[in-house]
Each structure stands twice: as structure tokens, then as C-alpha cells.
Write a protein that binds this DNA or RNA. Structure first.
Lengths: 138, 138
DNA sequence: GGCTAAAGTTGACTCGTTCCAGAAAAAGTG
DNA sequence: CACTTTTTCTGGAACGAGTCAACTTTAGCC
């Protein structure tokens, strides 16, 4: 149950949180608007702020992951723990998952690090999704 | 001369464009604010809008590259043509360059592409820059 | 030098997001 | 069950980054 997940991370179990967690668990990369809409269809009502709060809490707890593709509103996905990456459509912002291409993460070991203490390597593939290709091609 | 670069890309040579191109050529990863400030110190005056327009034109022409780290304002760098990546400080947004770790770009050939037509692979390393480490550590 | 399209100016405005206050409602604890 | 603390609510205001639109200026070409 998702309630256990919440408790395990020291978060209180509330309806909005369960709803959002449920929505994210269903898969996909949703923006705040979409999450809010879906949450409202499950509960009688949820405030926009509550959704932002919940997403913030889940992200901090590591139960959700925030994806912020340049030029598009932020999206969230259930964090599966694996180190996967994303394909983003330049035109509509659609997102797809991509497993790390190589076994060993070439990612986390850059040649130079300028003294930075690194904690994550993010890979984003940019292109056009099938739907947007059709529109552009015609 | 930078005027030639502009002309070569079909762009008219104007004072704001030369100034911005000059500033970028000096190196670094600057945000619009900083570019505007530097441009104003070279010219009598430049509108914020003009700076955005110029940066847009330069980016479209391939003379500049836009970097947009999640949670930080966009930054621009002179495009050197090589396929390098960036280290970004989570705290202050400072950016450093990193050459592609591997010779063959493992980057551009993800295992799955969901039908997307890809044109770029972006790698961002997240961490704390030396300065911010000190503040956090203490 | 004069013409025309491209580039710049100005100011209002959008968008996604955050913050704020105070009141109400739940959740966990003893 | 009563109590304390967290979370949520309503609603509004504010934010920074960036965009739009109408008008003026300027670069490049004859």
C-alpha cells in the first residue's frame, strides 16, 4: 500500500498524498496541471497549493522525481530508483523513458569536475515525438 | 571580426549583436542579466528586449548555445562546435564545461527512442561547486 | 541619398510557480 | 478520547523569466 511508503519516509498519510502517489504510480510524466486534474477527479477537491506541497514533499522524500525540461513546465514521475533518462519532444514536451545506454554509468564519472562534488548525472535526449513529426513533415 | 561571423550567417551587423557576441566570446556561461549589464557598459543603451532578441537570433544561427539548468535562469555560451557538457552547482547555478567523457558519443544512441527523431543529447552533471561546498560544510 | 525589410524600443502582459495569512481539518500519540 | 502537530484550505498577491504588439530606427542594397 502507498500508505506504508509514506509512513516509511516519515510522511503523514493524507488523502491528497495518497491520490497523488497513486496517480504517479500509474506511470507517465505528468505536469502539475494534469496531476491536479486527476487528483480532483478522485477526491472531492484539492487546492492547487496542496498539490504543489504534496509534490514537493514526495520529491524531498525521494518518492517522486521532478523533471524540468528546458522550456516546458515541470513534470513528475514515480521514482523507480533505477537511473534512467528521458527523451523529450521539443515541440509538445512529451517525455519517454530511456534506460541507461551503458551498463556502467559513464555518466557519473566525467573527465573533469572542476572541484565540484557531483551527486547526479542527468541525460536528456531532445527530438520530435512521432506525433509532432507528422505535423512538421506533412 | 565578429561582423563577418554575423554576415556569414545571414544576420545584419548591429551594435547590440556585436556587443553580445563579443561578451560571449570572452567565455563563461552568462545569464541574460549579466549579458545585459555588460552590453550596457559597452553601448550607451540596449533594451532588455533587444538582448533577448539578439540571443535568440544568435542561438538560432548556431553562434551561441542556450543552457537552461532546471531551477535556474537560462545561460548562454559561445558555441564552440564541440559536443561538450556541463557541471551545474545546485546551490548557486555556477556552470563548468566538461568534455564528452567517452570518445564515441554514447550519448546520441540511446537504447530505446520510442519513435522519437533525436537531434541532441544533453548531459548535465549536478553537484556543489567548491565555494558552495565550504558554505554547506562548515 | 533613398528605399525597404530587418532590428530595436517601450510597456503591458502571460505563465508557472511560490509565498503568505489565518482558519479548519485531519493524523499520529499518550 | 483528548491533545498537539502537521497538513490542507481559501484566496490573494507576488515573483522572475520571458513574450507580444505597435511603433521607430537602422542596415544593407540600388
Amino acid at each position: 500500500m502507498h500508505s506504508d511508503q509514506l509512513r516509511a519516509h516519515g510522511l503523514r498519510v493524507t488523502k491528497p498524498r495518497l491520490a497523488v502517489l497513486d496517480i504517479l504510480a500509474a506511470g507517465g510524466h505528468l505536469d502539475v496541471d494534469e496531476i491536479t486534474r486527476q487528483a480532483r477527479s478522485r477526491l472531492d477537491s484539492v487546492s492547487t497549493q496542496a498539490v504543489y506541497d504534496v509534490l514537493g514533499a514526495l520529491t524531498r522524500a525521494g518518492l517522486a522525481r521532478r523533471i524540468e525540461p528546458a522550456g516546458h513546465p515541470a513534470r513528475f514521475e514515480a521514482r523507480t530508483g533505477d537511473n534512467h533518462h528521458h527523451v523529450v519532444c521539443r515541440s509538445c514536451g512529451a517525455i519517454g523513458d530511456v534506460d541507461c545506454a551503458v551498463d556502467y554509468t559513464p555518466c557519473l564519472t566525467p573527465s573533469q569536475h572542476h572541484g565540484f562534488r557531483l551527486d547526479e548525472a542527468e541525460v536528456t535526449y531532445w527530438g520530435l515525438c512521432p506525433a509532432c513529426q507528422e505535423i512538421t513533415d506533412d
